[in-house]
């Protein structure tokens, strides 16, 4: 019995739709709550290739809603993209999976965007979403937006040239809304968003563009509310992403070190733009011989300095925990890595 037999039996997909899915390549940007769900569904569905991108590592507080991950992944602080890849390959060894442990910026996306059929939103911030929105329109690739918090969530499928884009809907980068780290979240909210994202993904990947949902879905699972909203009126000819004179503003790279306070996490991320790889083993040796306690794994180093825990990744990026002060974080970073 073919492993995809039940999907093939669904006649809107059928043998021909299954063949189409088996030729397709998607990027899932962020493998936290949303991304672990959608990547599992597409791997099980038999997509040809998934590139999963995440800058973070697995923590115990992720396990409540982030599929694919186990207690062992959290104890080892395994990078999310690598931990997800391990599990996805156990689920379906036929799918080509590339784990990318990095901040998804314009440089990275421009490098890997060739030959991509679909972009799926698994991120937790609108800066990255606006970047995806720009990339999607520059390269004419469908982009499935999703976000959620508490028991409230939303999903919308953006087809360049047809639907309004994320900038048309939101006009500008939203002021900080609610985040999972400030008001919490329950796992069914995530699943409700990803059920919509994955259904749209299977329509697109199987060649059923006409079945794609045209409305913006928003719901509250605690309040038992569900709305489906037409969005056509918001499509703007003046939009800088999808309008007549588009400039893709979120693809214009800065040229400096990027420092970001991670919302609600009491953590600052520091990231050199060119991302010259750092040599973790060499650094660990140096720090240990200086008397520091150093932990980690092949993908990252964890070091405690003056009560502050800092985690370094191979691309030179660091998470400075226990602070929201970018300058303080920068100082610790520079004191450790030069």
């Amino acid at each position: 019995m073919d492993r995809y037999s039940r999907q093939i039996l669904f006649k809107k997909i059928g043998e021909s739709g299954q063949k189409e899915i088996g030729k397709k390549h998607a990027i899932i940007l962020g493998v936290g709550a949303l991304g672990t769900h959608t990547s599992e569904t597409l791997a099980r569905a038999g997509i040809r290739k998934l590139q999963i991108i995440d800058r973070d590592y697995v923590e115990m507080s992720n396990l409540q809603r982030q599929h694919l991950f186990t207690e062992e992944d959290a104890i080892k602080k395994w990078p999310k993209a690598e931990a997800a890849k391990n599990r996805l390959q156990q689920i379906n060894s036929d799918v080509e999976i590339e784990a990318i442990v990095a901040q998804a910026d314009e440089v990275l996306l421009e490098r890997i965007i060739e030959d991509v059929d679909l972009l799926i939103d698994g991120t937790d911030n609108f800066e990255t979403r606006f970047l995806m929105n720009d990339i999607a329109h520059k390269y004419d690739i469908p982009y499935i937006f999703g976000s959620c918090v508490g028991t409230f969530g939303m999903a919308f499928t953006i087809i360049p040239g047809e639907t309004p884009c994320l900038q048309c809907l939101l006009k500008k980068l939203p002021l900080q809304g609610q985040t999972c780290d400030t008001v919490g979240i329950i796992a069914p909210t995530v699943q409700m968003v990803t059920a919509h994202q994955s259904a749209e993904a299977l329509k697109i990947l199987s060649g059923n563009r006409k079945a794609v949902r045209k409305t913006f879905v928003s719901f509250d699972l605690w309040e038992n509310e569900y709305v489906s909203l037409k969005a056509d009126a918001l499509k703007s000819k003046d939009c800088l992403t999808c309008g007549e004179d588009c400039t893709f503003p979120f693809l214009q790279a800065d040229s400096n070190m990027k420092v970001a306070v991670l919302c609600g996490r009491d953590t600052v991320q520091i990231r050199p733009v060119d991302g010259v790889p750092i040599l973790l083993e060499q650094l660990a040796d140096r720090w240990r011989s200086a008397g520091f306690e150093v932990g980690g794994n092949p993908f990252l180093l964890s070091i405690v300095k003056e009560g502050t825990r800092v985690v370094f990744f191979k691309d030179g990026r660091a998470l400075v925990h226990g602070t929201k002060n970018p300058d303080e974080a920068r100082k610790i970073y520079h004191s450790l890595i030069g």
């Binding site: 936290g32 939103d121 979240i185 909203l229």
Partner: peptide
């Protein structure tokens, strides 16, 4: 009328 705030979690 419906008022929908964008939320950023994911």
């Amino acid at each position: 009328i419906a008022l929908i705030p964008p939320v950023s979690g994911g």
